[in-house]
């Protein structure tokens, strides 16, 4: 083994040991805040791992979503839980009170740590046995992808798989995003954001970095057909910008009228569906792009999906339907 190989092996070893160690801290550390920070660290460590395992697209998604956005969501949830006083802004229900109250405690008993450890040990042993016996050299579907990609003008194989070969999965995945927004909105109005005044420093930071982030999002989208990137990574960039703006006290969605917000959320999935159905109209299969226009169609789908993903992620971060919603659901109590 040459020197470079040795360095690589040492690097791998460090990461391989560090991952479960940080995970243990994220799950078990006594302080919840510390647990969240360690969870964010785990996300970054995973992103590093994806780079090392030659998956740069996944690394971008993980760093932005798995670590960045999840971290923001967890921290804001922790802050909201800390602000929660029982009984305040309690939602009314159309059921009588004795029914909506939680059932008596004896109905469910937490599992003992010993039983859980036993279960986990069995699972880990089984999985280890399976992983060890997997074939150690296998190319998977890589040759098949390499054979088919040249038909399209897409050098990024992951984008090819995500939006072309397995575009149907991606359509359903954008459906999951849409569904998550519907679920969060159905749970009630967004809680009031914390009232701490954003100082000039954060305002200035957002002012400087904001335009660059929009630029980067556009670049990730455009370059995503040939280099790492794509609609998800670009959309998350926009979402992150929205979260930053919220933190700086400029709530980006509050100024949008209700219909515009709903249109922004729905347009990505709707356009994807429309393209798919149009293909049927042309006598092809659903989502079967014609050779000549495949790249243009994919970029079109990705561009609208990017905007929807960005708006959806900011809506998820807001944690409820916007107060400005004028759809007749305003002040919509159950």
């Amino acid at each position: 083994m040459d020197a470079l190989g040795l360095v690589n092996a040492a690097f791998d070893l460090v990461v391989i040991v560090l991952l479960p160690a940080v995970a243990l801290g994220a799950v078990m550390s006594a302080d919840l805040f510390k647990a969240i920070i360690l969870f964010i660290t785990l996300g970054l460590l995973l992103a590093l791992t994806w780079v090392r395992l030659a998956a740069p697209d996944v690394a971008l998604a993980e760093a932005a979503i798995g670590s960045g956005l999840m971290g923001a969501l967890l921290l804001s949830a922790r802050e909201r839980l800390a602000r929660t006083r029982p009984g305040r802004d309690r939602r009314t229900s159309h059921y009588p009170r004795w029914m909506t109250h939680p059932p008596p405690r004896r109905s469910h008993r937490a599992v003992s740590p010993w039983a859980a450890s036993g279960l986990v040990l069995i699972a880990v042993a089984g999985l280890t046995a399976a992983v060890v016996t997997l074939p150690h050299e296998a190319a998977g579907l890589a040759p098949e992808v390499a054979r088919q990609t040249p038909q399209r003008d897409l050098a990024n194989q992951v984008t090819f798989v995500l939006l072309d070969a397995r575009g149907y999965d991606t359509l359903l995945e954008i459906g999951v995003l849409l569904l998550a927004v519907a679920a969060v909105w159905s749970l009630g109005e967004a809680p009031e954001p914390p009232q701490n005044a954003a100082g000039p420093m954060l305002q200035g930071f957002v002012g400087t970095v904001g335009p660059i982030m929009v630029l980067v999002a556009g670049y990730l989208l455009w370059a995503g057909t040939d280099a790492p990137g794509g609609a998800f990574q670009a959309g998350v960039m926009l979402g992150a910008l929205g979260v930053l703006l919220s933190l700086a006290g400029r709530h980006p969605l509050a100024r949008l009228p209700g219909w515009a917000l709903r249109l922004a959320v729905v347009s990505g999935p709707m356009l994807f569906l429309a393209v798919g159905v149009t293909m049927i109209g042309l006598g092809r299969h659903f989502l079967e792009y014609p050779q000549a226009h495949a790249k243009a169609l994919i970029l079109l789908i990705e561009a609208t999906a990017m905007i929807s993903i960005g708006v959806i992620l900011v809506s998820l971060y807001a944690g409820g339907r916007p107060l400005s919603d004028e759809s007749g659901t305003r002040k919509g109590r159950l």
Binding site: S93, Y95, M99, T100, A183
Partner: peptide, 27 residues
């Protein structure tokens, strides 16, 4: 089988949101 996973998540998430529509602690 992977597409089944995505549909499974769609079913689960939408079912959960429907349960919560009732509002109140128990729901």
């Amino acid at each position: 089988i992977f597409n089944l996973y995505v549909t499974l998540e769609l079913v689960g998430l939408s079912a959960v949101a429907l349960v919560a529509l009732a509002g109140g602690g128990a729901a």
